[in-house]
Amino acid sequence: MASLKDLRNRIASVKATQKITKAMQMVAAAKLRRAQEAAEAARPYAQRMQSVLASLSDAVKGSDEAPHLMVGNGRDATQLLVVCTADRGLCGAFNSSIVRLARQTAIRLQNEGKKVEFFCVGRKGYDMLRRDFGNQIVDLVELKEVKRIGFTDAQQIAEKIIKRFENGDFDVATLFYAHFNSVISQVPTAHQMIPAHVEDEAAETQAASDEAGAVREYEPEESEILADLVPRNISVQIFRALLENAASEQGARMSAMDNATRNAGEMIDDLTMEYNRTRQAQITKELIEIISGAEAL
C-alpha cells in the first residue's frame, strides 16, 4: 500500500496537471472565438467567388479556352492529397480523424491503380503519414510561426500547388480539412480542388439572377478573367480550409482539455479519499499500539 507521502505527492502532481489542462482549455476557448469570427468573416468572399466563377464557367463551357486548372487535364492517374492538420497535438482526435480520412482515400485510390502523393500542411499530419507513405510526401508547410492565418499564407501554399500542377506532377488535387460544425463536432472533409468543382447550388442561383438581368459584360475577356480568377479561387479555398481547420482545432482542443480537467478532478477526489482513509488507519493503529502498550504495564 502506498505511503502517505506517496499519496500526497501524487495528489500534488495531478493538481498541477489539472491546472495546466484548465489553462489550456481557457486559452483554446479564447482562441476559438477569434478563429470562429475569422472563419465567418471569410465566408462572404468565398460565396461571391463561387457565384462569379459559376457564371464565368457557364460562359466558357465547352470552349478550349477554359484553363486547365478548372477543367483538369483530362487524366486522373496521379492524385495529390493536400492534408491540412494542426501543428500541435493535445487536441483530441482532431488530427488523427483528418489523417484517417486521407489515409482511407489514399488506399482506395491506390487499389484503383492510381499514384498518390501527399502535400502536408501542418506538422502533425506529416508525422502521422510519414510512417505509411514516407516517400510519397512531396512537401510540408508548417504554420507554427503564424499567429493569425492571413490570406498570404494560403496564397503561398496555392502557388506551390499550382506550380506542381503546371509541371504536370499531378492531375487531381483534393483538399482534406476538418469542417467546423460546433465546439463538439468537427467533421473531416475531402474537397476536390483541381479540377475546380463548382457547386451546383451557386451555379443555379447565379443562372437565375443572370436571366433576370441583361447580358453581363466582361473586361477583359471571359477567358482572361478566368485565367486570373481560377488560381485565386484555389487560394480562397485553401484559406477557407485553413480557417475552418483553425476553428476546429481550437474547438477540439477545448473539449479535449475540458475532459482532461474533469478526469483530473475525479482522480484528485479518489486519491484524497484514499489518503484520508490511510491517514485514519494509521492514527487508529498508533492509538492501539499506545493503549496496548499501557495495558501491558
Partner: peptide
C-alpha cells in the same frame, strides 16, 4: 480602378465584370 481603365459605377449600371 479596372484593369483596362478606371470606371465609375452609379445606380443602375449595366451588368459588368472587370478585374
Amino acid at each position: 480602378p479596372g484593369s483596362e481603365g478606371e470606371f465609375e459605377v452609379l445606380a443602375g449600371h449595366a451588368p459588368f465584370l472587370s478585374t
